[in-house]
Design a protein around this nucleic acid. Structure first.
Length: 155
DNA sequence: GCCAACGTTGGC
DNA sequence: GCCAACGTTGGC
């Protein structure tokens, strides 16, 4: 099974690299995904040992802030059953859950943030889903894009 | 199944 | 706060 690469978006004030860094073993549950296209990636394709860019959206500095690896594949997102949660979904049942989570472990916090503007300025990245389809919170990244972005940190 | 109205995401 | 680009809902 080939390792795959992903980009997960989050609003940093809700859940981001800081939360993962503060967690035991830097492990966290990626939950609250309520978009079918994103859900399908999480449920059907995201696998253990896949690597993930953590992206901060809707904030002052939008961009990629670090990497994580998947340590647990899709399982029912517990927040969908929690009446107290913003992510509660009355149409979801334990027998037939709609939404899934994965667990990830932070592997690197970048020494600097790679901004969306930088990414957009790179011809090599013009086909990234991030560039072509703005609104998608869980998206695939190609191996070439992954390697290219890691090199950008050194510049 | 179509499509208008409405809601959300997310950059700027 | 604005607005473009989606996604969702609901009448028919």
């Amino acid at each position: 099974m080939n390792k795959k690469y992903w980009l997960f978006k989050a609003e940093p004030h809700i859940y981001g690299v800081d939360h993962l860094n503060a967690a035991p073993e830097k492990i966290g549950r990626w939950d609250g995904i309520r978009n079918y296209q994103a859900r399908n990636f999480l449920r059907d394709q995201v696998a253990i040992d896949d690597e993930v860019f953590i992206y901060h959206s809707s904030c002052k500095q939008v961009g990629i802030v670090g990497t994580a690896k998947v340590i647990k594949a899709a399982y029912p997102d517990p927040t969908q059953f929690n009446l107290e949660s913003d992510y509660y979904d009355p149409k979801s049942t334990p027998e037939n859950p709609r939404w899934v989570s994965v667990d990830i472990q932070l592997t690197h916090t970048f020494p600097r943030l790679i901004t969306l503007a930088e990414i957009k300025a790179q011809p090599a990245l013009e086909n990234m889903v991030l560039v072509k389809q703005g609104r998608l919170s869980t998206q695939p990244v190609t191996k070439d894009e992954w390697k290219f972005i890691l090199k950008m940190i050194l510049k």
